[in-house]
């Protein structure tokens, strides 16, 4: 790791100002950034910690939605969202291991948009609104391919508004080494229809499986999608699974999520 300056502002405005410098990078839970710095793959001159900003913390129900501060650790979401939005809380409770869950944050995960991370599936699967210091971005517009988002340089996610589903669940098949999602599917049922978001599988990052959404909106049961198969084009191929295997898992995990939804 190279040396760096460290600042820890107490307001979003101060953080935005600190990030104006070209060589500054925001630091949230550090679960990706710190290892990449240790490997010397990333060498910011200044790290601007977002962990000291009170308005970016907490889990708060708000008119049919759950608003979660972007710097809220996964473990807090797992505990505090459980009674409001059990499907989302269960997803948070499955990320990484206890150490990761106590450091890693919602905003950090969404800003990084790792193609195998769990939170992007929740944000896209619920049609969440990504709230930044500058604007509000619909999840459908936010995710733009692996490690790519609609965020502008220096823009900070401050909170995320998740519409609470009637029923939801997340089913994740673990990559055996990293225990990231080899394929993870978040299914959420709303009065307006069903949303199905898939992480871990596609070279384009998290995506919605439209055919499954249509079928499940008609009939919210695993049987309704028993014959559906997700195409394997543009699925990830690596040591842990072929595109065909991942496409197959999308079907399996979607059915399991539907069966588990509550």
């Amino acid at each position: 790791m190279h040396n760096f300056e460290f600042v820890k502002p107490s307001s979003v405005a101060e953080a935005v100002a600190a990030l104006a410098s070209e060589e500054a990078q925001p630091l949230s839970g550090g679960q990706t950034l710190i290892p990449s710095m240790k490997a010397r793959l990333n060498a910011p001159e200044t790290l601007v910690s977002l962990m000291g900003i009170a308005e970016m913390q907490g889990v708060c129900p708000d008119a049919g939605s759950l608003v979660i501060g972007a710097a809220t650790p996964h473990a807090t979401v797992a505990a505090e969202a459980a009674s409001h939005f059990p499907g989302l809380a269960a997803l948070a409770g499955q990320i990484g291991d206890p150490a990761v869950r106590n450091r890693g944050t919602l905003g950090g995960s969404l800003a990084n948009n790792d193609p195998s991370a769990c939170y992007p599936a929740a944000a896209l699967g619920t049609g969440a609104t990504i709230v930044t210091n500058a604007r509000e971005i619909a999840a459908d517009d936010y995710f733009q391919g692996m490690f790519t988002t609609a965020l502008e340089e220096g823009e900070i996610i401050t909170s995320v508004r998740f519409p609470i589903a009637e029923k939801s669940a997340y089913a994740k098949f673990l990559q055996p080494a990293s225990r990231f999602a080899l394929t993870g599917v978040f299914v959420a049922k709303y009065a307006s229809g069903v949303r199905v978001a898939v992480t871990g599988a596609s070279e384009n990052g998290v995506f919605r499986w439209a055919e499954a959404e249509a079928a499940l909106s008609q009939n919210f049961s695993a049987d309704a999608i028993a014959e559906l198969t997700c195409p394997s084009d543009e699925m990830i191929s690596d040591l842990h699974g072929t595109p065909e295997y991942r496409a197959h898992l999308v079907g399996v995990m979607t059915r399991r999520a539907v069966a588990a939804a509550r």
Partner: peptide
């Protein structure tokens, strides 16, 4: 290709 615990499954 399996040069870390991210890909080498212990």
């Amino acid at each position: 290709l399996s040069g870390s615990f991210m890909d080498y499954a212990m």
